[in-house]
Amino acid sequence: MVGLSAGEKNFIRGGIEQDLRADGRQRQDFRPILIETGVIPQANGSARVRFGATDVIASVKAELGKPNPLQPGRGKVAIYVDCSPTAAPAFERGGGEELSTELSAALQKCLLGGKSGAGAGIDLSSLMVLEGKVCWDLYIDGLVVSSDGNLLDALAAAIKAALTNTGIPKVDVGVGASPDEQPEVNISDEEFLQFDTSAVPVIITLTKVGREYIVDATSDEESQMSSAVSVSVNSHGKVCGLIKRGGAGLDASVILDMVSAARHVSQKLIPLLDSEIDAAEAASLAGQGSDVDP
């Protein structure tokens, strides 16, 4: 990571204080957001999201498996993030390990809800095929292609888009199987169930620099943070997860204020993401994708 000189640091801090960041944004502005869906054809669902120069890909794969005996009526979801060396040579050979683990854990906390399953972004009981025997295992993989700050928010948006793009095939279970045997399953090629992603939350990270907080920080701005709070909010305005990151301590009132700021920002971000995702889906269905070959 390249360091910044004292003058540059001051410039960034001053900008944040004066509500005019280095690229002209205000504290609550996001960078231009680009979404493409269906980028990984061999996955059940996938999406690529760009926040400025931060570029991430999320893919969703569904495989049949056995449900957890403690929760026989639900499927399973696993989230895993990988930081590729193509993003930064520093990520080579385990250099990105720590960051990957942190991001994976944060995403799991925000998207999977409480232990009872309440408040999960994905309704796990919809993944059930045959109670106690067969369920869908969802593997959600995130890949960081290029990093310029705010990876968590970008990954969450990518996962939301990928889930919208995901089709789970319909499964017919063979009847008459004895309770001890593994039942016959017939996976349909034709019919798919789309996920209802209206409950999938977005994550908004508020980075505190000095007295103020900003959304969608670039790497340079993140290097100046005293601490950050990532809040996961769903379309009903409910908070689905909250993680405090970074060193400095925060007063409780500040954290609550940040939570309400995040909810306020989410009211603009969620409709924006939804419309971008819909546009991306329409574009990929039309077959041309969003790129042109010269």
Binding site: N10, F11, R13, G14, G15, E17, Q18, L20, R21, A22, D23, G24, G210, R211
Partner: peptide, 18 residues
């Protein structure tokens, strides 16, 4: 600024960003 240090004028900052 919050620590009493001299900040750039908003106009200059605007120009730099442009």
């Amino acid at each position: 600024g919050e620590k009493g240090q001299r900040l750039m004028s908003l106009e200059t900052r605007q120009h730099i960003c442009q």
